[in-house]
Design a protein around this nucleic acid. Structure first.
Lengths: 268, 268
DNA sequence: TCGTATGGATTGACTAGACAATGGCCTTTG
DNA sequence: CAAAGGCCATTGTCTAGTCAATCCATACGA
């Protein structure tokens, strides 16, 4: 019953901040090791057993501490091998790029170069549905609750890994019979297709929010657990201010940076 | 020991999806009640005891399920009163607004003015430091690791509640001796102050990412627990492409929507 | 040599308790 | 009537286990 080793081990990390709950001490200790680089991305953490001995705590307690770090996105459990430090390779995501094929000032390039020019393998899965407009879509497309929209859903992959969800909605009456309803790649882009139909978009509103991923997003993005996601919504308007497209982008928060560039005295 | 009531109660929610772990069933059941509006914002959830009886599970198990919802930001524990459904009043946050002309009183800066218009009680705490530029700041301001910057840190409150963190960094040599180094409100705005110093910003790059809040952000924002935050960085450039300001905004994810508007074929 | 069992280590899920901490409510007291 | 104190329901922290599921490596067999 008595556990001499345990008492000694307890001295080390636990005394320093004796007021805090033990599970937080565990989390703090590991977090600091990770931030200091002592546990680099990919490194394996001490096992639950080792931690419970080192902190002289029950396994459930160190587990509670590990859960904190998992929820923070710092570590990833890989059963039954152990916990590993997550690496975060950031992708830059530029909503403005859809209208500016070759934009970017030299400043931006410096930050992007490292990540963007890695020669990745993109692919996507497309499905198309005709559905009643969900509330948030109907609002933005200025439709009634019973109006139909074409929902063009894409899961985009990079090197085989799910990268984001990209669902676009179009009022059915505008695109019926066009290639947009066809669940295949539109080579020249759906925006060009809309233009060809007489609905060129000249203005867009971008909305960006952040929340935890929903259960079905966890599935589609093949996430190990719920993680923060960036939700990016675009509503495209024609010259006469008619909304003709709404796109819902769900990006894995830890993997993306959304980038905008703006200039003073541009509009009006 | 035997608990007849428990057996009966178990029938109801637990049988339906017997394959899933119980803690997930608890989370799913409550989540659905919340989404369906049966538990509206502000409503109190069943207590842990009630849930453990209803699902015929140990308290630790239903607690695990409740933790999921807390991490998703759906509910908020209020000890010792119980768990409550979180309401989400969204604020629109418009980075582009900082360059619109100042219409009204010069007494308030732009943010405070906007909020007052909306009938809120804004306030802020400002502190100013002179520090070595943190890596992410130094990179964007094109400074060396040892160069000094003025860090102007603000915590903004709305109706007494912390709302976001807003830290701006300026190369020391540009602003030394100016009012920017003074930890008081700059009535006409720090951007105007920079302009007056000969460094008008005509271009900006916005970066937006999402992650879980760090421990010190949890403290400063007085969050009950770690929650997803939106991190918004702005780098401001002069006409000759010199970066003169970097701002780091930390927004509580569940409370903000970042809004951009863009126009086709406007610039260049 | 090439699969094919078989263990072992590790995390996942869960139980049945204990005690501490806290905020609200009610009672008592001045 | 108002302030002070104590009760109590509820969550926070933690223990000490059990059994299940999974991946990896090792040993075994054809």
């Amino acid at each position: 019953m008595a556990f001499e080793q345990g008492k000694l081990a307890r001295m080390a990390p636990r005394m320093t901040e004796s007021s805090k709950p033990v599970y937080q001490q565990v989390a703090d200790w590991l977090r600091q090791m990770i931030n200091a680089g002592e546990l680099p991305p990919g490194a394996q953490l001490p096992t639950e057993k080792e931690l419970s001995e080192r902190f002289d705590a029950a396994r459930a307690t160190v587990r509670q501490g590990l859960t904190v770090l998992v929820n923070e996105g710092l570590i990833r459990p890989s059963r039954p091998r152990g916990y590993f430090v997550r690496g975060h390779e950031l992708m830059y995501y530029r909503p403005q790029a859809e209208w500016r094929p070759h934009p970017t000032s030299p400043e931006m390039d410096r930050w992007m170069e490292e990540q963007t020019t890695l020669g990745r393998e993109p692919s996507q899965k497309i499905t198309v549905e005709i559905i009643k407009a969900p509330v948030r879509v109907a609002t933005r497309l200025e439709l009634g609750d019973d109006d139909l929209v074409v929902a063009r859903r894409r899961v985009r992959f990079l090197d085989g890994e799910p990268f984001n969800l990209n669902d676009s909605f179009y009022p059915l009456e505008l695109v019926q019979g066009s290639e947009i309803v066809n669940p295949a790649d539109v080579a020249r882009g759906t925006n060009q297709a809309l233009t060809d139909l007489g609905y060129e978009q000249v203005r867009a509103i971008d909305e960006i929010e952040s929340r935890m991923s929903l259960p079905d997003e966890v599935t589609r993005l093949e996430l190990p657990i719920a993680a923060p996601v960036l939700v990016h919504r675009v509503t495209g308007f024609t010259a006469d201010d008619r909304p003709v497209r709404h796109t819902l982008n769900v990006l894995i928060g830890s993997k993306h940076v959304v980038l905008f560039e703006r200039q003073k005295n541009m509009g009006k």
